[in-house]
């Protein structure tokens, strides 16, 4: 019942928001992997809908400048001007974030919640994990992608705009990361 209600809410939100922002031309290319409304159906590909505009802008610049290395994204962003980057960021930031589709495994979610509290994820990502400024939204994100991103930060193969993520994930086990990803991906989005 709950799933149906939140699905309906998401649909209503999508219909309501649709006329607000026309998709920039490049969004057609993005849609192939990230979904037409910024909700990804592909493994390890993040959802962009409802991410903070500043975060989206900064990450696209990092891809374009090849500071963040992932060949398909480096290629996709090559030659894209700042104004187009900002238009894409505005578009995806205004789309409604995905709602979690699966019910959490209570034990793993509870472990993830405790880890999040201990490592103070909510200080930067905010208590409802909606993100702010350069800090991404975690609620509504794909579980496999969250795990993928945390592994990259922990291994030092991904750089943010500062070094916070490397430091906060220092010493966490693979199981810790998996439970954190599970908890964050299934936490109900407050907004």
């Amino acid at each position: 019942m709950r799933g149906i209600r939140s699905g309906a809410a998401a649909l209503a939100a999508a219909l309501f928001c649709a006329p607000l922002a026309a998709a920039p031309e490049q969004a057609e290319l993005c849609a192939a992997c990230h979904g037409a409304r910024g909700v990804s159906a592909l493994e390890d590909v993040p959802s962009l809908a409802g991410q903070p505009e500043t975060f989206l802008t900064l990450q696209m610049i990092l891809f374009r400048e090849r500071i963040r290395r992932f060949e398909p994204m480096n290629a996709a962003m090559r030659g894209i001007g700042d104004a187009e980057v900002e238009a894409l960021a505005r578009f995806y930031a205004a789309l409604p974030p995905a709602r979690p589709e699966t019910a959490p495994d209570p034990e793993r979610a509870s472990r993830g919640r405790a880890l999040s509290a201990r490592h103070r994820c909510g200080v930067c990502h905010l208590a409802d994990y909606a993100g702010q400024a350069q800090v991404p939204r975690l609620s509504g994100q794909r579980e496999d992608y969250l795990l993928h991103a945390m592994r990259d930060y922990q291994a030092g193969t991904r750089q943010g705009t500062d070094t916070s993520m490397q430091a906060v994930l220092y010493g966490l086990s693979e199981r810790d990361l998996a439970d954190l990803a599970h908890y964050l991906a299934t936490v109900p989005a407050a907004r």
Binding site: T54, T57, L58, I61, L62, D82, A83, V85, E86, H119, R120, V123, C124, A133, Q134, V135, T161, D162, T163, S164, M165, A167, V168
Partner: peptide
């Protein structure tokens, strides 16, 4: 804890102070 949060006393644990975002455009 994040390097920028090390040494934070308990009474500031709920602080939402965080580094400001850069602008790269």
């Amino acid at each position: 804890v994040p390097a920028w949060a090390q040494g934070r006393p308990d009474h500031m644990a709920q602080s939402t102070l965080a580094p400001h975002p850069p602008r790269m455009t």
